[in-house]
Write a protein that binds this DNA or RNA. Structure first.
Lengths: 331, 331
DNA sequence: CTGAAAGCGCTAACAT
DNA sequence: ATGTTAGCGCTTTCAG
């Protein structure tokens, strides 16, 4: 490993000058600086971030802790975060917490141990993790899911989107909707359920038909099976995310039920494949990429600007995109 | 920030003892050790990895550098890597290089600067990055794409899979296939093209009809449009990944062409949505998760075992899954 | 079994 | 403008 002192010797100067020249923020004689850069290049010098970080007591690294890497929504968010981070000189690494408080804790520990410059996280349910970050003085912004903590956050209007989707189903003429949503521990899952119930309430429908499952394909499959095996099965479904939807589709196919003909279907998240399903799926679309850029923007401000500024909560709207799966055959 | 010396004071001992007690690898008096642990807990001590890493000159961190986070294949790989890494005490963070040599270079720099314990990477095209890692003494294993470098790698048999897919198309009775693949710079893209051409050769078909595009939805769309606008358009398509496939589907839908009826279609990668498309898509399936676990296993061995052991190249087989999109209507 | 002290590579006072 | 040096928090000899 070639280090500063080696470069200094090669360039015939001191480590301090080399450090200054290479970080080209201090005034150092242009000719000398050039000699230093040449020496560094010749020796193939690479700064040791570990040492630098220890000395500076700060890094240029963000951790983006998401709850499930296999959900397309989060990968779009990640893109947004990344693009913005890059512009401001931060590197961002992704951590997959997998809807698991334990794994999430591991990554939070990693963030404080590595002295991350900031963290963007879609928290599962354990708010103590967020507090740990705050205690360690690491700026945090929540994404996708808010918490009661006084922290910056960027979320989509899950409740409103769910309500709109359900109302659409009802307007189409479907009469016995059901809601398949994520685990009680995930804020988005309950918000979407609440929005669904808001719509039922407005329509004076008493029967709720709500089922909570993990946000997985398997969860969607078993939820659908359970619902359809009831005495009075639902005639339509509001599904709270794309993974669940895949499971719903699977179970429907198994039973020979066709969305839009035999059963109404609206889903949260506009997955890229939604338009090509048979029939095309009606969805509630979230501005995932923009959520990422906004969260990153908030983090940048929090880091450089006012550490003590009041927390900001950004809530972005959702769009209902009607395709065929939600259309009632009688109309 | 509470540090070792604080814990030492609280426990009435020295930093050395605290360090030993907390890393519980040295022989230290059980009673004292207990007192130290209590003090650490009371003060909420968290080790500073930056300092530890600087001293140890090593970390427990892996970087997984993938070429596109939005491709489901890579997210499955990531799961596999992660699960295995965890078992061996490593934390893994994901880096999205986005099929961009520049971004890839940034993350490679990050790996050496942060002294990563190991790197798993699906290289784009620039083998100098790999060399940089090797020069820095960081164990590397390639995934998805091999290179000529003497490094461990885990890949799928892209060429064989592509050949099988194309032969299947031909056996079905399609006569004028075309191939939509990724950029020339991606090894998988050319391997799949080669497999496609192998099949044509065996069938004595001279017209190649190959188009290279970025591995994106937009790439698939424009490729399809270009192909269909030719004088003698193809009657069937072999598509080299899932993102491209989405674009193909889009363009086909726009033109009112139905796969399996108007045009044959087989794709690489068994995306979770493939069975639910109208009609269900025939695919070549790669064992993504297993590729991840195998790569991680290789890395563990490389780190702990023989640094100088000869490189191992693992090639996993692929499966052709026939659904409806590839079936010829005349049969 | 425990403590004192050196030093990982770098940056930032401080001195010149 | 440049050099000298202390020290970031930790681990690990080396003494005791």
């Amino acid at each position: 490993m070639v280090k500063l002192v080696d470069v200094a010797r090669e360039a015939g100067t001191s480590v301090a000058t080399v450090s200054r020249a290479l970080n080209n923020n201090e005034r150092v004689d242009p000719a000398l600086a050039e000699r230093v850069r040449a020496a560094a290049a010749k020796l193939g010098y690479r700064p040791n971030f570990v040492a630098r970080n220890l000395r500076r007591q700060s890094t240029k690294l963000w951790l983006l802790i998401i709850s499930d890497i296999e959900i397309a929504f989060f990968t779009s968010v990640a893109r947004g975060v990344e693009d913005t981070a890059l512009k401001h000189g931060y590197a961002v690494v992704l951590c997959n917490a997998d809807e698991d408080d334990h794994k999430e804790a591991r990554y939070v520990d990693l963030a404080v141990a590595e002295q991350a410059a900031g963290v963007i996280i879609s928290p599962h349910s354990d708010h103590t993790h967020i507090e740990r970050l705050i205690d360690a003085g690491i700026p945090v912004v929540l994404i996708d899911r808010g918490l009661d903590e006084p922290v910056d956050s960027v979320t989509a209007d899950s409740r409103g989107g769910a309500q709109a989707a359900t109302e659409h189903l009802l307007q189409q003429g479907w009469e016995r909707p059901a809601c398949i949503t994520g685990p009680q521990s995930a804020q988005t899952a309950v918000q979407r359920r609440l929005g669904y119930e808001d719509a039922l309430k407005s329509a004076s429908i008493k029967t709720r038909r709500v089922v909570h499952r993990p946000f997985t394909i398997e969860g969607g499959r078993t939820a659908t099976a359970g619902l359809l095996d009831r005495n009075r099965p639902p005639d339509s479904l509001f599904v709270a995310n794309a993974a669940l939807t895949l499971g719903v589709l699977q179970e429907l196919q198994t039973r020979g039920l066709r969305p839009g003909t035999d059963i109404g279907l609206v889903c949260f998240d506009d997955a890229p494949w939604a338009p090509f399903i048979d029939p095309p799926i009606s969805v509630v679309s979230q501005p995932a990429y923009r959520m990422g850029t906004q969260a990153a923007g908030l983090l940048v401000e929090r880091i450089s600007g006012g550490r003590d500024a009041p927390p900001r909560r950004i809530v972005l709207g959702t769009d209902l995109i009607v395709r065929s799966s939600s259309l009632h055959p009688a109309r």
